[in-house]
């Protein structure tokens, strides 16, 4: 596999990561969201392995495996169980104005392209062009957290943001040191557990995971 081909495949995977980010932005069903999240993790993991191969950085293989086990298998499984336990698997969320959200997403992609253009000029890495996609994925994850009202979807938005950050690290500097990556992975895992516990409490207190319900603090009004 030559360098050119690897860069080619990597840009394809970057495109798919971006596509899944947009898919998550407009997906209404819980299970669909989790599947998209798992797909994004898979593309990310393959992309990391390819970058590791191209750059000859072998610790990237480990973080690729870490991504695969954590973001493709474990986190989707935890979310799946959570949704089953909370009995919200049939819930369909109303997404406000899908075309407008998509247009904002496209604007974010253009913005991050503009933002990373100077870096692209300076960098000599094979992966320099995917930095814009990584930044756009972070921003779209943020946009998802803003536009969604359901607590579980907001968490998935958060995890998608983390995916974007990981991707940015891989494409900008061939990955963070392994210690940092292990720490982040552990953090995300712990966060997922804590979110799970919080969801149960929110659900028992408010009978719903709609965060709008939490705007009321007093019981009286």
């Amino acid at each position: 596999m030559s360098l050119q081909v690897a860069a080619h495949i990597n840009s394809f995977l970057a495109a798919f990561v971006l596509l899944t980010a947009f898919g998550m932005l407009v997906q209404r069903r819980m299970y669909g969201l989790i599947h998209l999240f798992a797909w994004q993790g898979l593309f990310l993991s393959i992309s990391t392995a390819i970058v590791g191969f191209v750059a000859g950085k072998h610790h990237l293989y480990i973080s690729s495996l870490l991504t695969l086990s954590l973001k493709v298998v474990l986190l989707p499984y935890i979310l799946h169980v959570l949704i089953l336990r909370l009995r919200i698997q049939k819930e369909v969320e109303t997404v406000v104005n899908v075309p407008l959200t998509m247009l904002i997403g496209v604007a974010l992609v253009i913005f991050s392209y503009h933002l990373t253009a100077p870096v692209r000029e300076l960098s000599t890495l094979v992966t320099r062009s995917t930095l814009a996609v990584a930044l756009a994925t972070v921003m779209i994850g943020l946009l998802m957290m803003i536009t969604r009202r359901h607590a579980v979807t907001q968490i998935i938005g958060f995890l998608a943001m983390e995916n974007g950050l990981f991707f940015a690290a891989t494409s900008a500097t061939y990955g963070m040191p392994l210690v940092v990556e292990l720490g982040v992975a552990l953090d995300v895992l712990i966060a997922a557990f804590i979110f799970g516990i919080f969801f149960f409490h929110i659900h028992t207190t408010f009978d719903s995971l709609d965060v709008d319900q939490m705007a009321r603090l007093k019981e009286g009004d």
């Binding site: 899908v98 075309p99 998509m102 992609v109 253009i110 814009a132």
Partner: peptide, 23 residues
């Protein structure tokens, strides 16, 4: 249908953007 065609527009726009970003 607005969402169906909106996603078609989105895909086409992403295609155009990825020409500039990734190629």
């Amino acid at each position: 249908l607005t969402e169906f065609l909106g996603s078609a527009f989105l895909l086409a726009t992403l295609g155009m953007l990825s020409y500039f970003i990734l190629e």
